[in-house]
Design a binder for these strands. Structure first.
Length: 419
RNA sequence: GGAGGCGUGGCAGAGCGGCCGAAUGCACCUGUCUUGAAAACAGGAGUCCUUCACGGGACCGGGGGUUCAAAUCCCUCCGCCUCCGCCA
């Protein structure tokens, strides 16, 4: 949820944000007027309640005729209060409905526009030159005995796969490398639940426009998470955190589940886009004034990981229309995929400012001891998809794949060879 | 799956339908005392909404009901705990 105080003070900023996202500006004014109506409804109901409270005290003391008269008056007041409360609650519902529909206010420096309007912030490394025809990650994976898509489909359907032998080991090595880096940087490693309650899923902003992306277990009214961001954001919900010592940093290791609804025909080959994958994700709670600096740190940590697996990549500043509901700004790192001759997303670092925290009621005490909404951020350290970039960029003519130096201690071998 | 119990402030734990935002203890903060600390004593201290402010209102798991009036009575949902069974 956006901050209504900020909205009242500077509605134009929110309108500008809606424009940057390519969304409806009128929503802003509808929200403003709903806010106004709610506040007057609250004031009216408060006044009546105060009156009723006073009267109630008198009834307790009165006797005889006086008491009867007061009771009659009380009945009338009770009806008035009931009506005023109904009006208040209607106004509150209407406000809430509009409130949750407004996405986070886009950072003023984020590019406006849609998916293709990103800005490239930098490119690191150069795409490898092969003196042979490079093979894609699926063929490589099959030859290495690392990947079995056919049986994945047999057992679970399309977009499912088995990581087999060295494939499974490779993923563990990647995730362990990520977990080790996170731990070394002061993150608390977490293995969270991957099924969450509706209010947690809603609080993270995934039940809005992206609701169809989320698996739901109807019988139990639980949702399968698409990222450990969800349980980690819920971890401190309804709490007042002590952030005086700095940000709280968590690294969540979990399986992630995505329905990939509406992506028919996209990335159908291999493990680029799948229903289930594993990920180590950084998640941070901090004071709002520290969020932007923390966002830069998350990006730096992602780049540190990419450097360790030695693949060329670029960093993009994602445009407003492609941000998702909760993010104010998002930096993606995209690795070079040789057989596609283009960059593909490997990491994503979002600054959600106070948007998620306000929904989930995560607060901290400011220097005056007042509770305030905290800021939350998240960023990727490693996922199953990284295997794609790793295999393709480090392949050799004989079908073997060189293991990057940093990964060797975790994998135990220097080269993966065809079986 | 079956049986039972419980949900009150940071924690523990009281609470005849009106005088209960709520006793008491612990923890906490501020003073006094002390060279300093401890102890003792005095005081303070929840969250949310609303208001420029004074103030007003809401919150005793959630929702609904009874009543002039509900932490207290009724219904319902949710959560937690214990025991038995089953599974791993």
């Amino acid at each position: 949820m956006i901050d209504l105080r900020t909205l009242r003070e500077d509605p134009e900023a929110v309108r500008a944000s809606q424009r940057a996202r390519g969304e409806d500006e009128a929503l802003v004014d509808a929200l403003l007027s709903a806010d106004e109506r709610r506040r007057s409804a609250v004031a009216a109901a408060d006044t009546l309640r105060a009156e009723q409270k006073q009267l109630g005290k008198q009834v307790g003391l009165a006797r005889g005729e006086e008491r009867d008269a007061l009771l009659t008056k009380g009945k009338q007041l009770a009806a008035d209060v009931r009506a005023a409360e109904a009006a208040q609650s209607a106004a509150e519902d209407e406000l809430a409905k509009l409130h949750v529909a407004v996405p986070n206010v886009v950072h003023p420096d984020a590019p406006a526009g849609g998916e293709d309007d990103y800005v490239v912030l930098k490119e690191v490394g150069t795409p490898p030159e092969f003196d042979f025809e490079p093979v894609d990650h699926l063929d490589l994976g099959v030859r290495l005995g690392a990947l079995d898509i056919e049986r994945g489909a047999k057992v679970s359907g399309s977009r499912f796969y088995f990581l087999t032998g060295v494939g499974a080991q490779l993923q563990l090595a990647l995730l362990n490398l990520a977990a080790a880096q996170a731990t070394a940087n002061g993150f608390t490693l977490m293995i969270p639940p991957v099924l969450v309650r509706p209010e947690i899923m809603a609080g993270t902003g995934f039940l809005g426009a992206h609701a169809s992306e989320v698996y739901r277990l109807a019988d139990d009214d639980l949702y399968l998470v698409g990222t450990s961001e969800v349980p980690l954001a819920g971890y401190h919900s309804d709490e007042i955190l002590d952030l005086s010592a700095g940000p709280r940093r968590y690294a969540g290791w979990s399986s992630c589940f995505r329905r990939e609804a509406g992506s028919y025909g996209k990335d159908t080959r291999g493990i680029i886009r799948v229903h289930q994958f594993d990920k180590v994700e950084m998640f941070v709670y901090c004071r709002p004034e520290d969020a932007e600096a923390e966002h830069a740190r998350l990006l730096a940590w992602e780049e540190e990981m990419l450097a360790k697996i030695e693949v060329p990549y670029r960093v993009i500043d994602v445009a407003g229309g492609d941000l998702g509901m909760s993010a104010a700004r998002k930096f993606d790192c995209e690795a070079w995929v040789p057989t596609q001759a283009r960059y593909r997303e490997l990491t994503s670092a979002s600054n959600c400012t106070t948007f998620q925290a306000r929904r989930l009621s995560v607060r901290y005490r400011d220097e005056n001891g007042r509770p305030q909404a905290a800021a939350t951020l998240n960023g990727t350290l490693a996922t199953t998809r990284w295997i794609v970039a790793l295999l393709e960029n480090h392949q050799q003519a004989d079908g073997s794949v060189l293991v990057p130096e940093a990964l060797r201690p975790f994998l135990g071998v220097e080269v993966l060879r065809p079986v």
